[in-house]
Computed example of a mutant assay.
Amino acid sequence: MVLRGVGRSFVNARGTHRVLADVDLVVEAGSTVALLGASGSGKSTLLRLVAGLDLPTAGEVAVGGEPVRDVSDRCAVVFQEPRLLPWRDLAGNVALGLPRGTPRAEGRERVAHQLGTVGLADFAGHRPRRVSGGMAQRAALARALVRRPGVLLLDEPFAALDALTRLKMQDLLDDVQRGTGATTLFVTHDVDEALHLADRVLVLGTPEGAEGARVVRDLRVAAPRPRDRGDAELAAHRVELLELLGVPRHA
């Protein structure tokens, strides 16, 4: 995944608002990258550009060496809300992620496999209203994985979950990513989540005097995965990232 000079501006009644400016980024295949930044810093906008849900007003986004012009089967997206159809059971919702033209028998096999991957094999026939928020989000993850994407994009996928469920979902995502080898880009406001999951943590911000956010820190996390949440190296990175986000360390 490569971004070259990417910018995104929006025009409103007060003029042009530049959200992103001159973003240059190379994401290695099979790696996991977290996007951190204050609200409004362009994290979700950047994710949408990679997904092909929006187009840049400057520069170019390329996935697999090909420019992103539209939504591609190479990518799958998991949003903050599960967005499950209430009249379909979990298996039916996961099946919505299958690429068009997938043979029926193969589709059933892939859906069953991914429901098993996320621990929902025994709940395939349940409607969304009968499962917890964490289970619904697992179904949303399975719906993305059933595409067998080369690139997995997640926009604050665990933000609506309680703290304990969120930690379990982080571990599940880590297991899934390492198992599939998908290149993963995810947006989060949670510094600890970023450090637990990502090989690199990118902080988006707008330097003083500039217009439009860009990458102001590219932090490589060397600790092997799966990670110990009590790792001293992660604690040091946490202090640095919080300070970049405007939360200073107090004496």
Results as ranks from 00 to 15, higher is better:
L96S: 01
R108F: 03
R74P: 00
V2R: 13
V203F: 12
G133T: 08
R110C: 01
E233M: 01
A95E: 05
A142H: 07
A95L: 06
R143T: 01
V215M: 10
D73K: 00
G209H: 11
V23L: 11
A105I: 02
R104E: 08
G92R: 03
Q170L: 10
D218R: 12
P67S: 08
D175I: 02
F10V: 13
F158I: 00
P224A: 11
P103F: 02
E109T: 04
L167Y: 03
R127A: 13
D73P: 11
G181R: 11
G97L: 01
H189P: 13
A38C: 04
A182K: 10
A182R: 10
V221P: 05
A235V: 10
L172T: 08
L141N: 09
R18T: 15
A76W: 11
L3Y: 05
D190S: 14
R227S: 08
A13F: 00
T57D: 03
L161G: 06
S132H: 07
E208A: 14
T188S: 14
L46R: 01
R69A: 15
S31Y: 00
D231L: 06
L245H: 11
P82M: 09
T117M: 13
H17A: 13
A136V: 00
R147C: 02
F123A: 15
A163E: 14
V131S: 12
C75K: 04
E106Q: 13
T184A: 06
G119T: 01
S31L: 08
A159I: 09
G37R: 01
L153W: 02
L36N: 10
T117L: 15
R108E: 14
L25R: 06
A232M: 03
R220S: 08
H250R: 15
V203S: 10
A159F: 09
L164P: 00
S9D: 15
R88K: 15
V2S: 06
P67G: 11
G101I: 00
L234R: 11
R100G: 11
A251L: 14
V203L: 14
V247C: 12
R110T: 04
M1G: 02
G179Y: 08
H196D: 04
H250N: 00
R14Y: 04
T180M: 05
A210H: 13
G97H: 03
G101M: 05
C75I: 06
G134Q: 09
G205N: 03
A38E: 08
A112Q: 05
T45L: 08
F79N: 02
A251G: 12
P86H: 03
L195W: 11
E208V: 14
T183M: 04
D54L: 05
P67K: 07
R110N: 02
L245K: 13
A160D: 03
R69T: 15
G212Q: 10
E208M: 07
A236Q: 14
R138G: 01
A91E: 13
G5Y: 03
G119E: 07
